[in-house]
């Protein structure tokens, strides 16, 4: 298992911080990729942030009302070692299947 933390991104242009309004997930929750996990408020707007990965929530860095600085940790996930990257899926290893059979008369000389 690996731990992956995500920092608060700059949600506008040159914003320095955001206030946590509401956590939409709890520690221990399984979160899917693109699932909104928090609502934060900046000086410009309030916005729900989607999770960049699938994983189990390990730590929520802050309580509702707390100010989080851009580029500091917002949430930490625990993910399996064989979990997919941010794009794509892990290929499933199935038993090799085929329809073609070889029928060769080998005239070795």
């Amino acid at each position: 298992m690996a731990e992956i933390s995500f920092p608060l991104p700059d949600l506008g242009e040159g914003l320095l911080e955001a206030t946590v309004l509401e956590w939409l997930v709890a520690v221990g929750d399984q979160v899917e990729r693109n699932q909104p996990f928090v609502e934060v408020e900046t000086t410009k707007s309030s916005v729900e942030l989607p999770s960049p990965i699938a994983g189990i929530v390990l730590t929520l860095h802050g309580e509702p009302g707390d100010v989080v600085l851009v580029d500091t940790p917002l949430i930490t996930f625990r993910v399996a070692d064989d979990s997919a990257g941010i794009v794509g899926t892990v290929p499933q290893e199935a038993a090799p299947k085929r329809r073609v059979r070889l029928s060769a008369v080998l005239d070795e000389d």
């Binding site: 090799p96 085929r98 329809r99 073609v100 070889l102 029928s103 060769a104």
Partner: peptide, 14 residues
């Protein structure tokens, strides 16, 4: 895939 490669093998063998 496996079948396409096997077809290629078959073409070479025959």
């Amino acid at each position: 895939n496996i079948d396409r490669i096997l077809f290629g093998v078959q073409r070479v063998l025959e």
